[in-house]
């Protein structure tokens, strides 16, 4: 058991996030169903967590010194699968089994099927409570230096269960809990602010007793820095409101809620992969 063995440069992490995006496109195209926008938008956060911030061991997923990562918005799990494969939890070839019969990579994550998955999620609004329960249990046992991270979506905050957990975490302040809200402003039926307005989101969390940070959730350096800051804040639980671009990296998917819940077809996947290879036309060669 060990921490991550070495430090990656920001440039390396950015390249990794881009590779993960390409795998997400391939997975979704092969699966023929699933969610595109959220996983692409979350690639930088997952890369920063798995390749920098998290204490974990891909060869020993149940290591009892590991940090815990809960993905509450389970529909975004393709990004987690892709990142876990990159980190060495399982062979990348398995990524193309996503959503297929017999696969460990279920449409929504199941703990009992894939080591390292931590919990089963999909129905929204219960990840923050589970993470709070985990954090409280660690505190009861006086375990230090283990952190519980929970990623929730913004649309998921429509769920009352989320705010029940927000209140409980503030009440007990376990001191080892970091929430990250994927603030991408879309949900299935449209923009979050037209489906069910969430603003002022930061003020809401603060009013509920949390320390809240707004960051650019597609800036790996900012993500790493926010996590470090969250660990330094002890008086309150910390939420990082990570503003991400849904569909990030693929021009025709970015900021379009129609891509929330559907996969690319073959032609669209080819186009998306070309964009990701060339970083949206910013570089010339398609064969870096």
């Amino acid at each position: 058991m060990t921490d991550m063995p070495h430090q990656y440069s920001i440039k390396e992490l950015e390249q990794r996030a881009n590779d993960i995006r390409m795998d997400i496109i391939k997975m979704l195209e092969q699966a023929g169903s699933g969610h595109s926008a959220g996983p692409l938008g979350l690639a930088d956060i997952f890369t920063a967590l798995y390749f920098h911030s998290l204490k974990h061991d891909p060869k020993n997923p149940d290591w009892d010194g590991r940090d815990i990562l809960i993905l509450s918005n389970g529909h975004c799990v393709p990004v987690r699968y892709a990142t876990m494969a990159h980190a060495g939890y399982f062979p990348k070839a398995e990524l193309l089994t996503l959503r297929k019969f017999g696969s460990r990579l279920q449409g929504h994550p199941e703990r009992l099927r894939l080591p390292g998955m931590e919990t089963t999620s999909g129905p929204l609004g219960s990840g923050l409570s589970q993470a709070t329960g985990m954090a409280l249990a660690l505190k009861m046992d006086d375990v230090r230096n283990r952190w519980v991270y929970v990623i929730t979506s913004d649309g998921e905050l429509d769920e009352g269960n989320s705010w029940e957990a927000v209140m409980l975490a503030a009440k007990y302040n376990p001191g080892n809990l970091i929430a990250i809200v994927d603030r991408n402003n879309i949900q299935i039926d449209g923009p979050t602010e037209s489906v069910m307005p969430l603003e002022s989101l930061k003020a809401k969390w603060e009013a509920f007793g949390w320390f809240a940070l707004n960051i650019n959730g597609n800036d790996i350096e900012a993500i790493i820095s926010a996590v470090e800051m969250a660990k330094a804040v002890t008086e309150k639980p910390v939420v990082i409101i990570a503003h991400t671009i849904p569909g990030k990296g693929v021009d025709f998917m970015e900021k379009d809620f129609h891509w929330h819940g559907k996969p690319p077809g073959h032609e669209e996947a080819m186009k998306a992969l070309k964009e990701l290879r060339t970083l949206q036309g910013k570089i010339r060669s398609e064969h870096q």
């Binding site: 931590e118 409570s129 329960g133 269960n161 409980l168």
Partner: peptide
């Protein structure tokens, strides 16, 4: 508090640990 959804999900997290 009066929050049954939270009651069982927080418990699920504690059971995980």
């Amino acid at each position: 508090g009066v929050a049954e959804q939270n009651l069982v999900t927080v418990a699920a997290g504690m059971a995980a640990m």
